[in-house]
Write a protein that binds this DNA or RNA. Sequence first.
DNA 1: TCGGTAATTCTGCATATATCGAAATAGTGG
DNA 2: CCACTATTTCGATATATGCAGAATTACCGA
Lengths: 112, 112
Amino acid sequence: MSSGDDDQLVRFADMLSAMGTEPRLRIIRRLLAAHPNGMVVGEIGADLDIAPSTLSHHLEKLRNEGLATVRREGAFLRYAANHDALQELLAFLYAECCTRNKVVKPETVTCC
Amino acid sequence: MSSGDDDQLVRFADMLSAMGTEPRLRIIRRLLAAHPNGMVVGEIGADLDIAPSTLSHHLEKLRNEGLATVRREGAFLRYAANHDALQELLAFLYAECCTRNKVVKPETVTCC
DNA sequence: TCGGTAATTCTGCATATATCGAAATAGTGG
DNA sequence: CCACTATTTCGATATATGCAGAATTACCGA
C-alpha cells in the first residue's frame, strides 16, 4: 500500500507537471472554458497561437497524463478536458492541504 | 488587465511546475503534514532521503515560487508550507475547473 | 484514386532541470 | 578563535523539455 501511495503521488506529480507550463495551462483553461464540447486542434492552435507540431506535443502530454481526452470527428480531432482526472487531482490537493489541518473536509469537494 | 491575467497564469503555471516533481511534491506533502510547525532542512532530508545539495535546490525552488517559507532558528533553517500561496492556487484551479461549469461555487473553497 | 486539408511524427537544436560530490559559508558552543 | 554542524553554492554531467520546420499519415469530397 505504501508503494501504491507512491504510485499515486508520482502520478499526481506528473499531472501537476503537465499543467505546470504556460502554454499547457492555457490549453487546459481553454478546454475547460469550452467544456463539455471540447475543441478541435486547429481551433485551439488558432486561438492560442501555437504552432501545430508544438501544440501536438502539448496535447500528447495532456493526453498521456490523463488530463485531456480525444475523439476523432472526421478529419478533425476533438480534445476535451478530463473531468475525472482533474477532480482526482483537486481532491488529492485538498486532502493533503486541508484534511491534515482540519480546516475543510475533502467531502465538501464535489466538483467538476 | 489582460496582461495581469497572463502574469497570474504564468505564476500559477510556475507553482504547478514546482509541485510537479516527485521529490518536491513529497516535500510539500511532508511540510503540510508538519504544518504549522514546519521542519528543519536536515529533518526533511533524513525523512525523505534526499542528498543535502539536491534538497537545497528543491527547497529553493519551492521558496522561489512562494510555496514554502523559511526562517532561521539558530544554526537551523526551518521551512514551512505557505498557506496563502496554496490557497490561491487551489482557488484558481477551482475557479477554472468549477465556476465555468457552474457545478460548485469557488466561494465554498475556504481552505488552508 | 486523386488532391486537399488536418494532425501527427520525425529531426534537430537550444534550453532547462535533476542530481550529487566537493568546497564554501553561516552559525554555535567551548 | 577554533572545531563542529547545518546548509548553501559551485561545478559537472545526464536527462528532459520546449520549440518549430519538414516529412508523413489520416481523412474527406469529388
